[in-house]
Computed example of a mutant assay.
Amino acid sequence: MRDKGWDPAWGSGLELWDKKQDRCVTTVQPEFGRTIVLPHGPASYHGHTKPLQAPDGRPRRSVAAYYYTSPLAGKQHGDESASVFMKTHRVDRVKALARMLTPPVVWLLARKVSGRA
């Protein structure tokens, strides 16, 4: 018995077919914990050609997950991948420098005194 009690005589093995779809290359029987990884594309030659013969309508359970990546992923194309730097005002740069050089407690006190805390 497989798949926590699944009997291969009940059918529903996953059939993997050749590209011409004229012969089944192999059949993978359901087995609890088994993982099958298949590439997914315009054509996937797999399936079940024989009907399920489980007693009392017992279901055959499976989980399918798909992972998609763009063909452009990881490739630089034009200015889209370039960093864009915004011009900052001199006041902003001075304030940023002051924040780097001043202890945080001074900034907290300044916010409290100014009423922006």
Results as ranks from 00 to 15, higher is better:
38 L>K: 02
27 T>H: 04
54 A>E: 02
92 D>V: 07
54 A>I: 06
59 P>Y: 06
63 V>M: 13
51 P>S: 06
13 G>W: 10
74 G>I: 13
34 R>Y: 06
37 V>L: 13
41 G>H: 00
47 G>H: 03
18 D>R: 06
28 V>I: 10
93 R>Q: 15
39 P>E: 02
37 V>S: 11
2 R>D: 15
104 P>F: 06
72 L>K: 15
38 L>E: 03
62 S>Q: 11
104 P>W: 01
106 V>M: 02
86 M>Q: 15
82 A>M: 09
107 W>K: 01
67 Y>N: 03
71 P>C: 07
5 G>H: 08
110 A>C: 01
24 C>L: 06
69 T>R: 14
39 P>L: 00
38 L>D: 08
91 V>I: 12
45 Y>P: 02
77 H>F: 15
99 R>F: 02
22 D>Q: 10
105 V>Y: 02
30 P>V: 10
21 Q>N: 09
77 H>D: 09
117 A>H: 07
27 T>N: 12
9 A>E: 05
98 A>G: 01
39 P>N: 00
60 R>L: 01
23 R>E: 09
56 D>R: 12
44 S>E: 06
111 R>K: 15
31 E>C: 09
100 M>T: 12
107 W>H: 04
64 A>D: 09
112 K>I: 12
68 Y>H: 15
110 A>E: 04
97 L>V: 09
106 V>G: 00
25 V>N: 07
65 A>W: 08
25 V>I: 13
10 W>Q: 07
40 H>I: 11
76 Q>L: 05
87 K>R: 12
21 Q>E: 07
42 P>S: 09
64 A>K: 03
